[in-house]
């Protein structure tokens, strides 16, 4: 029986792919350590409110050097004032060293900052309160600010589902298409199809091993996030699994389609970058896409990465189940199927 299985070509293909993967030291770093480091870095940076030091440019002379506003809820705010000329101030502004410039004119303080820059606006609001200048924008006093500490609303709760989805996208797109293109350019594909190997088995093995690896990666990332940040899955775990598989399948299908023809890694890389970069920026992995213009949001929500990230997020943090996620699961699965079938149709084995 065991001997029979070990003759099975799908089994041997899967085994070969697993061996190749675990014998590649880069996999361990990029697949497992890197996402954990990223979540650790970003999670700590955005989750624990630390003291904020803000540089303020002052045109002309100033007797202020430094003001610290103690705040045990939101973290201390320290303002450091620097006397500058306009020219120096502009350079520092452009370099991002400061985002607000003060000027005293006719006994009144004038604030110069870019109103499109939310950081600058925040600096203005905080500083205006300190300097006791009336502001129309910020009337809240510190006592009215109630920091939210519920699990599910922290940045790390937002980030981890996004990182899981992004990891799947990257792993599938790069891993699957690299394996295909490399085997094609080395004439191994051609050699394999000159045997009775079933062509679909070759691709199924490739996808299966990717999904297995992505499971391990996502599992470890989740484990880490649970230990370090106490993240939990509040919704339906089965729905989470289904969504995870559907997302893997979608990206693997896209990768097969992308690499169905070329024998040049550069072409594959270009196509993958062209597809994955916009999704990484727009799909709400690191920050919400609701900051983008109104008209673009319905478009962004149709990207596979958005669907997967939003879906995982709704299950993990909002407690969603199959009812809320059946649509993205179905769409992702059929995306994968369509690209897989189309890719197989035009696939160049020689």
């Amino acid at each position: 029986m065991i001997e029979r299985i070990s003759h099975n070509q799908l089994f041997q293909l899967i085994l070969a792919n697993i061996r190749e993967l675990i014998r590649e030291p880069g996999v361990l770093f990029w697949g497992i350590i890197f996402p954990i480091l990223m979540s650790l870095g970003l999670g700590v940076a955005f989750t624990r409110k630390k003291d904020v030091v803000t540089n303020i440019g002052v045109i002309g002379q100033t007797h202020f050097r430094k003001i610290t506003v103690p705040d045990d809820k939101l973290g201390n705010n320290t303002f450091i004032f620097q006397s500058l000329t306009w020219k120096e101030a502009m350079i520092k502004l452009k370099r991002g060293n400061l985002n607000l410039i003060l000027e005293e004119k006719n006994g009144a303080v004038q604030y110069h900052f870019d109103p499109m820059n939310p950081d600058a606006q925040l600096t203005y609001l905080k500083l205006a309160r300190v300097l006791n200048t009336p502001t129309s924008l910020g009337k809240a006093t510190n006592s009215e600010i109630l920091p939210l500490k519920v699990n599910g609303t922290r940045y790390i709760d937002f980030l981890i589902p996004g990182l899981i989805a992004m990891g799947v996208m990257m792993s599938c797109m790069w891993g699957v298409s690299y394996a295909i293109i490399e085997r094609r350019s080395k004439k191994l594909l051609r050699r394999m199809v000159a045997t009775p190997m079933k062509r679909s088995n070759f691709l199924i093995a490739l996808i299966t091993v990717r999904v297995m690896m992505n499971f391990v990666e996502a599992g470890l990332l989740f484990l880490f996030a649970w230990l370090a940040f106490n993240i939990t899955v509040q919704g339906n775990v089965a729905a989470l699994f289904a969504l995870f598989i559907a997302g893997n399948f979608a990206f693997a299908g896209i990768a097969i389609f992308i690499s169905s023809h070329t024998a040049k890694t550069e072409v594959g890389n270009g196509l993958i970058n062209a597809l994955s970069m916009p999704m990484m920026v727009l799909s709400g992995v690191f920050f919400s896409y609701h900051n983008f213009p109104e008209w673009s949001i319905p478009v962004i929500q149709k990207f596979p990465l958005t669907m997967m990230a939003d879906g995982i997020r709704s299950i993990m943090t909002e407690g969603a189940g199959f009812a809320e996620t059946v649509l993205p699961i179905a769409i992702l699965a059929s995306t994968g199927l369509i690209f897989f079938v189309a890719g197989m149709k035009i696939f160049r084995w020689h």
Binding site: Q9, F11, Q12, A16, T195, P196
Partner: peptide
């Protein structure tokens, strides 16, 4: 060995 086993499996050939 693994390479031989892989190709042998395409022909359903054993160890």
């Amino acid at each position: 060995w693994e390479t031989l086993r892989l190709f042998a499996s395409f022909f359903e050939i054993g160890k």
